[in-house]
Each structure stands twice: as structure tokens, then as C-alpha cells.
């Protein structure tokens, strides 16, 4: 191929790659969510167990008052480091409705078991809205995955949650808040129904670690990411094994191919 045609192809390929990068990038109007370093980032990332336990405390003491987490079960907490007995105790603290009625045909409540899903704070959407000024606090089971930035290499859900926790302030002079709303720099439209949920020492961590807003935000962001994506550690671990195997296999296959083709080339 001639130099000119090679350059043309290379230029087109480069433009194509740029186009693809653009495709993957989020359309304009984004909120400049700053990206943090997370323990679960990268090819070898994993969840920091301390952050997870702190995060669970933040969820159960602050967030669970309004936010459900319907897809998570108490038994999942064993992955964070709770023993089965501790998990049973955490579950037993709540009263949940039994699946079947009693022999008189009435539904009744019983203490929670490890196999139960996390109890929701409200029985249905209407009750949740009524208690929250018409706004529906979203379920947190997949919050971290659903709030990720679109595209490749952008911010992830943890970055968004962390930023949101830090984003509360008095509104600037030219912004008029609608009734019941709060100003948040990182929320789309800047008016969010949720009042600031976390401040310094909103919780007292069980292990005595300082509970600054920053630590609490980091903890809840990590915990919510774990809730959304508990397969992360197994996935990256399996990925490493798969990639190593595939590299070895591809090298072998290449050598075999060259050997077979030697006389033809």
C-alpha cells in the first residue's frame, strides 16, 4: 500500500477512534463530578472491609429511615465480616410480615431472619411519598450502578454519591429554591428533595474511628457500591485468571499457526 493511502487509513482510523470516544462520552451539560480513588478501582481492586462496615452503620442508622434496599438480604452481610450470629441478631431486630397467614387466616409479624430481605421503611410508594413531601426516596439496591456517568472512563456511582454528600450549601443569590427543596451543587438542576443527610458525627462508628462527613460519605459510597456490585471481587479475580490463560493460549495458538503456515509464506 502506498504512503498516501496508509496515511489516509491511519487518519480515518484515528478519527474513528475519536468518534467512538465521543460516542461513549456523556452528552454536554454534565456536572463535573470529581473522581475519587476507590479501593475497588482498577484491575486488582477490592472493597475495604472497614469502609463497608462503617457504610452499613451509616445506612442502617441514617439512610434506612427513608430509603429501602429491597434486593439485599441480611445474610449478605456475612460478606462484610459479620458472623452468622451477628447477622441473625441484626435481622431479629426488625419485625417483618410472615409470608403465610396464621391458622386463623390473618397475616402476622415475626422477627426477621437472615434469609429475609432488608425491611423497607415504607410499605409502598405512596406512603413513602406522603412522608417525604411528595418525593420518592429511591431504593438503594442499585443506586451506585444507576448513577454512574455514561461512557467509558467517566465518574462512577461512588464518585456521584460522595460528591452529592459534599454538595449541600446555601443556594447562590440567583437561584430561587422551590418549596421543600434543598440546594446541591452536584445534583442535576441543583434542587434536591433530600435535606442534607450527613454531617460530622451523624453516626458514631462502632470501632471508634472518627466520623467526619468525609469518612461517612466515603463509607456510604463504598457500601452502596458493594450493595450494587457484590460480585466485583470474584469478577476481577476470575478475570485475572481468564486473561492469564487467554494470553498463554493465544501465544500457543500463534506459535501453532506460524508452524502450520511456514511453508506457505
Amino acid at each position: 500500500m502506498s504512503v498516501g493511502s496508509a496515511i489516509l487509513k491511519l487518519a480515518t482510523a484515528a478519527l474513528g477512534v475519536a468518534a467512538v470516544a465521543f460516542i461513549m462520552a456523556e452528552p454536554g451539560g454534565h456536572l463535573d463530578i470529581p473522581q475519587q480513588k476507590w479501593s475497588f478501582d482498577g484491575f486488582f481492586g477490592s472493597y475495604d472491609r472497614t469502609d463497608l462496615r462503617h457504610g452499613f452503620q451509616v445506612y442502617s442508622e441514617v439512610c434506612s429511615g427513608c430509603h429501602s434496599m429491597n434486593l439485599e438480604s441480611y445474610r449478605n452481610l456475612e460478606e462484610i465480616g459479620f458472623t452468622p450470629d451477628e447477622v441473625a441478631a441484626i435481622a431479629a431486630k426488625v419485625q417483618v410480615q410472615n409470608e403465610d397467614p396464621n391458622d386463623q387466616g390473618e397475616m402476622f409479624e415475626r422477627p426477621g431472619k437472615a434469609s429475609d430481605h432488608f425491611k423497607a421503611p415504607f410499605p409502598n410508594e405512596q406512603a413513602a411519598r406522603a412522608a417525604n413531601n411528595g418525593a420518592l426516596p429511591p431504593d438503594m439496591s442499585l443506586l451506585a450502578k444507576s448513577r454512574a456517568g455514561k461512557g467509558f472512563g467517566g465518574y462512577n456511582g461512588a464518585d456521584y454519591i460522595y460528591a452529592l454528600m459534599h454538595g449541600y450549601s446555601e443556594p447562590p443569590a440567583d437561584v430561587k429554591l422551590n418549596p421543600g427543596m434543598n440546594y446541591n451543587k452536584y445534583f442535576k438542576g441543583h434542587q434536591i428533595g433530600m435535606p442534607q443527610p450527613l454531617q460530622d458525627n451523624s453516626v458514631t462508628f462502632a470501632d471508634g474511628a472518627p466520623a467526619t462527613l468525609d469518612e461517612e460519605a466515603k463509607a456510604i459510597a463504598t457500601f452502596l457500591t458493594w450493595v450494587s456490585e457484590s460480585n466485583l471481587e470474584q469478577r476481577k479475580h476470575t478475570g485475572l485468571k481468564a486473561m492469564l490463560f487467554l494470553v498463554a493460549f493465544t501465544l500457543l495458538a500463534y506459535a501453532a499457526k506460524r508452524k502450520v503456515w511456514k511453508h506457505v509464506h
Binding site: 486473561m243 487467554l246 494470553v247 493460549f249 493465544t250 495458538a253 500463534y254 499457526k257 503456515w261
Partner: peptide, 12 residues
């Protein structure tokens, strides 16, 4: 053999 090699690259 060429397809198997190509498959390896693709699987990566």
C-alpha cells in the same frame, strides 16, 4: 489454526 489464533485475540 488461523481462526483459533484470531479467536484467542478476540477472547482477550
Amino acid at each position: 489454526t488461523k481462526d483459533v489464533f484470531g479467536l484467542g485475540i478476540f477472547l482477550l
